Computed example of a mutant assay.
Amino acid sequence: MQIIYWLLVALMVVGIIGAVVPAIPGTSLILIAIIIWGIVSSSFVAITIPLIVTVIVLLLSVGVDFLAGYLGAKQAGASKWGQIGAVVGLLLGFFGLLPTLPFGGPLLGIFFGPLLGAIIGEYIYRRQFWLAVKAGVGIVVGTLIGNLIQGVLAIAAVIVFLVTTWPQVFGG
């Protein structure tokens, strides 16, 4: 039983990483691990609080994701073109289709893709390079701040799980 517990905790750690790094599942992995623990331990009563907290964290994470990107874009004066460019850049960067990145693969593309995409999208719309750069940086900074907040929320969900289930597994 302890081996399964530690494997699920490891899955939750991947979920924490995924909450911060785009394109890796985050809080949803934590939720899945908690549900699996409820099934394996045959004690859904023991996971009621972690389950509720994690569902709330998942909903908050979605809200933070949209709000942080929006506020970052708004603060920098970005248009919808910059936001669309950031999404396209993220996808192209993740799949390694950025010709300017012959090394680093998807992980590096995830970080540079949205920035380049936002700058290109904003430049197409405004035709002013420095405004496009400002908007691109604003979108990326907003997204990074949102990802950090999601990471903190994911850590909180895992801590709640550990605190409530530890006595069940290890006694005490």
Results as ranks from 00 to 15, higher is better:
147 N>T: 01
13 V>A: 13
7 L>K: 11
97 L>I: 09
160 V>W: 09
141 V>A: 13
22 P>A: 08
25 P>I: 13
133 V>S: 07
98 L>E: 09
46 A>H: 04
166 W>P: 09
62 V>T: 02
32 I>K: 02
18 G>T: 11
115 L>K: 04
80 K>H: 04
50 P>C: 05
165 T>W: 04
132 A>M: 14
43 S>W: 01
29 L>M: 10
127 R>G: 03
130 W>L: 15
153 L>T: 06
79 S>G: 05
69 G>W: 15
105 G>E: 06
139 I>D: 08
103 F>V: 10
129 F>C: 08
106 P>M: 11
19 A>M: 12
106 P>G: 14
66 F>G: 02
153 L>P: 04
72 G>H: 12
92 L>V: 07
94 F>P: 12
155 I>S: 12
30 I>T: 01
118 A>F: 10
115 L>W: 05
48 T>W: 07
78 A>N: 08
77 G>H: 04
115 L>V: 13
148 L>I: 14
79 S>R: 05
83 Q>A: 07
132 A>G: 03
147 N>C: 06
143 T>R: 09
90 L>I: 06
74 K>S: 04
61 S>C: 15
43 S>F: 02
61 S>Q: 12
2 Q>L: 05
91 L>Q: 02
66 F>E: 00
58 L>I: 09
49 I>S: 02
39 I>W: 09
107 L>M: 07
111 F>G: 15
163 V>Y: 12
9 V>N: 10
17 I>V: 15
165 T>G: 14
86 A>F: 06
163 V>D: 10
86 A>W: 09
77 G>T: 08
154 A>R: 00
67 L>P: 00
24 I>P: 05
5 Y>P: 07
9 V>A: 09
101 L>W: 01
165 T>Y: 14
14 V>W: 13
58 L>R: 02
106 P>H: 05
152 V>D: 00
156 A>T: 12
25 P>M: 12
56 I>C: 04
80 K>T: 11
85 G>C: 08
160 V>I: 12
1 M>I: 03
39 I>G: 00
157 A>C: 04
33 A>C: 10
154 A>D: 09
130 W>A: 04
103 F>R: 15
143 T>F: 15
116 L>K: 08
113 G>R: 10
149 I>K: 02
28 S>L: 07
1 M>G: 05
74 K>M: 01
95 F>G: 10
148 L>H: 01
138 G>A: 06
1 M>F: 08
38 G>M: 08
103 F>C: 08
163 V>H: 10
101 L>I: 03
3 I>E: 15
85 G>E: 08
80 K>E: 14
86 A>T: 10
32 I>R: 00
149 I>N: 00
23 A>L: 06
160 V>G: 00
126 R>Y: 11
37 W>F: 11
171 G>T: 13
154 A>I: 11
121 G>M: 11
109 G>S: 06
18 G>N: 01
26 G>E: 02
126 R>T: 15
93 G>Q: 08
